[in-house]
Amino acid sequence: MEKILVLLHTTDEGALPKAALETIAAAAVIGAYDLGVIGANAAAAAQSVSAGAAAVFAVEGEQFAQSRYATDAAAAEAIAKASGAAVIFATGTMRFNRALPGVACRLNGACETHIVAIEPDLKVHRWYYRQRMEATLSRAARPWILLLEPGAFESAPAAPGAAATPIAVTVETRTTVTGYHAPNADQQTIRPDAQLLLVAGAGWTKKQKDGATHTPEAAGLILNFVQKTQSSLGSSKSLVDLSGEGQSVLPFLSHLHQVGQTGSSPRHRKGLATCCHGEEPHVVGWRFINDRRAINLDAACGWSRGKADVLYVADSFEVMRELEKLL
């Protein structure tokens, strides 16, 4: 069996992200593994989950507390070399998605991202063409870095174990992380941990039965729903595009909300699509939603039928007005 390294990072607060335990569990199924953690409080974080690890490494210190390519890549390279692992399981966060492909190149290896399943013989599953087809593949190149899609694997309980061996890394960088920009709490409409994803389609800004558009009302209904249910808001590409072109649009939408074709593929337990006739969310952005419902005026909509569990043939405005009273 090839040597495996599980590579994790901590958050700015020094904790492991939720998906870290998923990565450990996925590796444990395959075989024995080393553990390496990068970031603030890395050594303590590593020890908190190191029960199953053969060897434990950590790179920490002020320079490595920040999510930044140059430092993360150097730290990952050092741990990979210290372990000598042939296959590296890592958490597919934005931080590692940024840093580890370059590390693979540096080590003359290869890297796969967005992995959703791994077979015992190390064939990995990932999606191509914007989640429209799934491939099962393997590589001969080593080291092979596998970035696991958060939410795609079962999680293991945290079991503390041996203390980490600290690795000293020096690296020069011209980049400083200066902070974050987040929407105000009352404008927060992207909630990755929400139970429900509400997908708003371009129909919300189109002419309604009376021949007029009702975009302000649509905006109110959607925002109110999202706030009351604490759901996450996604949007179809066409609706987001409209906002870039100065048309009558929902004011709070940005490309960050986009799901499907050229957006994210969020993982939520439930999804409710509204006004999306003929748009991609039904097909693509929904791929990782377990329980899907759609409100749509066209019963024959080929993009809902066979894709949603329940299709309500109704006017989304009317249904959302009623929902507003109930929630």
Partner: peptide
Amino acid sequence: AIAYAQVALPAVTRQTRIV
């Protein structure tokens, strides 16, 4: 460089309940 064992379209077609 890559050995593809399989590439497939997702086969899931749901039994949509129409209301």
